[in-house]
Design a protein around this nucleic acid. Structure first.
Lengths: 341, 341
DNA sequence: TTGTAAGCGTTATCAG
DNA sequence: CTGATAACGCTTACAA
């Protein structure tokens, strides 16, 4: 039988209340008593029953998710996953507040973080904008002792406890290797399509992609990245222009959320032979494009995993418990037409 | 505030015990009372607090894992993950018994399943051997009302509640597409290396691989599969022979656990140009081979995920609770040198 | 058929 | 500083 507080109380010759004080590092225990209790705890190998503790405390974990207001399918999916988590709140003993902030604006994010720092949240998850003022605000959250995880996009040199997202440099490198290998002996130009290079994840993907391209596949010409601001109409126009201007393009890497603008351009079959196309985020549309051969591979991050992982980690941090590291690593999913879910 | 049993008791004008009887479908409640209580439950939107219920019951979930005794690295890893789950037993309220059975022998597996059917386990997970007698034994486990999940290898037309493993046909297809695309304009023969085609997952991988090869890349000659019984020495010999015999081999797909025999053969550099090599299971050795370019891609299933998923699903089934389907889908991980963990 | 009361392992509120 | 004692939401003897 697992030892309980009663067992340590008896073994240490004190009352339940004192054991509880020691366990929770509350004041009002004489040094000597504390030591006695701690010895009993160690001797019996006691581990607290979190479920019982939560029951007694009627504990709920008040978490805050700060999400950018952004129409792209990925962010919409992320939001949906947060909503599903909210629907499970009863069972999971969470209370999740969503704070909307304009995308890419650090000021709004800073304000939201400061609100969190001043509040009573047990943890906060946010899609970071990698800017100095955000870093400072994160410092204030950490100073308030509030567990903090970055979601999808990380904040460098910050005191966040955890990052629930993929390694974007590795994603870019992976895309480049696939691209180079798929192209084989073909020759021509390769064009990356980004949303905005102001965003850290886009920048990192491009960085990884370019590095591998230059090093392993130097015979291709890497064009400067097209910045389509993840705006379908703009992407459609820009990419149409680029493809007309460079009829020898043999590869396209769409590393942002501009797919809804890119796919129509591709389906118009502007180039022959068709370029190798690799893009990010699996959606209805990109899955269909994989199926019909318009595109060649999709890299994906699972928003559901990211949200559930963020919640698990925040809970663990709030309780001072360890996490299963392998379980919380967010993988870069690679989809070909053959392994669609 | 979430409604509790007290609330429904008061609202229905009955006692706690009666509410509990209705909630747990226990006998000894008059029809009329039952209806009253059920109405109150529906009206208040009551959902049971599983943690509190488990506390009151001092519940532990006695689970059985039936694992093949098998020296290959994947099975060793699976076993390690089960052991880690056992280490977490205290926190997760599980008690996990491992039954060892000789690999690939259905008789031993049947005996183990029958032992489970006769016992008091709250659930069982096992690596299936796809044979009629196993199917029948699974039927007896199901008849005993014991939740059952297959692990890594599925049992067709069986009453298992869930399969915690990858889609092996899709894995084979994915390998074929990668192989064909990586080879590009090259010509030659492709040889699959299996453990044993008596095993369902190996057979399915080969099936998926062959189908795509024939359909999408018909200009390659697909040699018959080498069956190396996942035995390093045997694999080394057989593959050495095959490569000498067919110097025009341009692709190798190792779909079983024979990698420790295959890698030395490859490192001896028998062919020029080097063949495209795709294999299953990420280990120290295969990861290193990816890094140094000996092989081109690794398909992997995460044993840790499979074990944790099996436990989550068994718990849910034991409690009659729903599972988050997306969370329990085991993905085919694709690793290139760029996205190693 | 129904109700009362104790208890699961922890925390919280009082007195002492 | 310390200790009874009553919760938390649910289950379960045991009575009625």
């Amino acid at each position: 039988m697992k030892p309980t507080v009663h067992d340590i109380a008896r073994s240490a010759g004190v009352s339940l209340a004192t054991v509880d004080r020691v366990l929770n590092a509350r004041p009002g225990v004489r040094e000597g008593t504390r030591v006695k209790v701690e010895e009993a705890i160690a001797a019996l190998g006691y581990v607290r029953d979190v479920a019982a503790a939560n029951l007694a405390k009627s504990r709920v974990y008040p978490f805050v998710f700060i999400l950018p207001v952004n129409e792209n399918p990925f962010m919409a999916g992320l939001r949906r996953e947060v909503e599903e988590a909210i629907a499970r709140s009863g069972v999971e003993r969470t209370r999740i507040e969503v704070i909307d902030v304009p995308a890419l604006e650090s000021a709004a994010l800073v304000a939201a973080l400061d609100k969190v720092a001043a509040g009573d949240a047990a943890g906060v998850a946010f899609v970071a904008v990698d800017a100095p003022d955000v870093r400072e605000a994160a410092g204030r959250v950490a100073a308030a002792g509030i567990p903090m995880v970055t979601l999808v996009s990380d904040l460098s040199q910050s005191p966040r406890d955890h990052y629930a997202g993929i390694d974007n440099i590795a994603a870019g490198r992976t895309a480049a290797t696939l691209m180079g290998r798929f192209l084989g002996a073909r020759q021509g130009k390769i064009v990356p399509l980004a949303g905005s290079l102001m965003v850290r994840d886009h920048r990192e993907r491009l960085e990884g992609f370019s590095a591998v391209m230059v090093q392993d596949f130097p015979h291709f010409t890497l064009l400067p990245a097209v910045e389509g601001r993840d705006d379908a109409a703009l992407v459609e126009k820009l990419m149409g222009d680029v493809l007309r201007q460079h009829p020898d393009i043999c590869g396209i890497y769409s590393l942002g959320a501009g797919n809804s603008g890119l796919l129509p351009v591709l389906e118009a079959q502007p180039l022959s032979p068709a370029p190798v196309v690799i893009l990010h985020e699996l959606t209805q549309a990109t899955g269909a494009a994989l199926q019909n051969g318009t595109i060649d591979a999709v890299l994906n991050q699972d928003a559901g995993h990211e949200v559930r992982s963020a919640i698990r980690v925040l809970k663990a941090k709030a309780d001072g418990l360890p996490v299963i590291a392998a379980q919380e690593r967010i993988r870069i999913d690679i989809f070909l037409k053959d392994n669609l879910p």
